[in-house]
Amino acid sequence: MRKKKKLQHEVEVPITPMLDMAFQLLTFFILTYHPAPSEGQFIMNLLPAQPATNLDAKAESESTQNSDLPASVRTMPTLLYASAGGKLGRIVLSNQEQPDLAAFEKQLAQDLQNPDLAFDQALIKFDPDLKYSELIQVVNIFSKLKLTKISFSEMSPEEMSAP
């Protein structure tokens, strides 16, 4: 008799409407969820182009950016020529032709370790027809070798026709 009385006082909260709501919310989130691919970035401070298109120019022009740089610091020039289809054709690093990206990386690493060559920044001059992905490959190599002070410039028609 006592047991029966207890059962009568039991409160049952209906969970079904709450579950319906929860499923609706879940459906919304599943439909609006687009997993973003993992993107990386190269952060650069690119000041306006200066009349330093002459590759032999020393880096004094950068003194406005960093007055602590010694006068011996020079810019490492890299020329990127495009082949057919915008692929990377020729690579010229400090007037030395590099057969491919692997050789370029090796030579760059050697130059950066050479105490006689106090490079700490690079100027990348590229063929206008070069594809962006090819440029990023070169930037990637500079970044891998911890040379992050990079500036860009487009090749002039004279430079492109130079041997």
Binding site: S38, E39, G40, F42, L46, V139, N140
Partner: peptide, 9 residues
């Protein structure tokens, strides 16, 4: 002057 050039990891 500040740029972040995006690329896939």
């Amino acid at each position: 002057f500040k740029f972040a050039m995006k690329a896939m990891n």
